[in-house]
């Protein structure tokens, strides 16, 4: 079963099946700048805040997601599976990456340009 996921920061939408994580659906957007990280709930780079919708969360590192965080929907996208349509906001490292690429702009040659995001 597929659900619609809305990234509030950019207005983008993508479909995400109930057996795939919100992160893998997001990565399928093919967008540069999505920091996929370890994909195992350990490194914390894919932190998001679910603002609306139901999801199932698998175990993730308490170093990056406190009990309070999790209760308020601040979770790691790689460990969260949709159970309804979802609205989310990106936080932390992911927010920086998305914000940087949200508006197409010429990339200046710099160290940044050599980094494979």
């Amino acid at each position: 079963m597929k659900f619609a996921v809305t990234i509030e920061d950019t207005g983008e939408r993508y479909d995400c099946a109930d057996e795939e994580s919100l992160l893998s659906g997001m990565v399928r957007l093919g967008r540069r700048g999505i920091p996929a990280g370890c994909c195992g709930g350990g490194c914390g780079v894919c932190k998001i805040e679910v603002t609306a919708g139901e999801f199932e969360a698998r175990v993730m590192s308490r170093q990056h997601v406190s009990v309070v965080d999790q209760a308020q929907g601040r979770v790691l996208a790689c460990r969260v599976y949709p159970r309804s349509d979802i609205s989310l906001r990106v936080v932390g490292k992911m927010h920086k990456c998305l914000a940087r690429t949200a508006v197409p702009s010429p990339r200046l040659p710099s160290l940044d340009a050599e980094v494979d995001e």
């Binding site: 780079v45 590192s61 050599e114």
Partner: peptide, 21 residues
């Protein structure tokens, strides 16, 4: 550093610098 990490591709993959546990 990019060549040091990935000699054929000459890329300093961002995950190398930022993803740790």
């Amino acid at each position: 550093f990019g060549q040091g990490l990935d000699y054929p591709q000459r890329k300093l993959h961002e995950t190398f610098l930022t993803v740790v546990t």
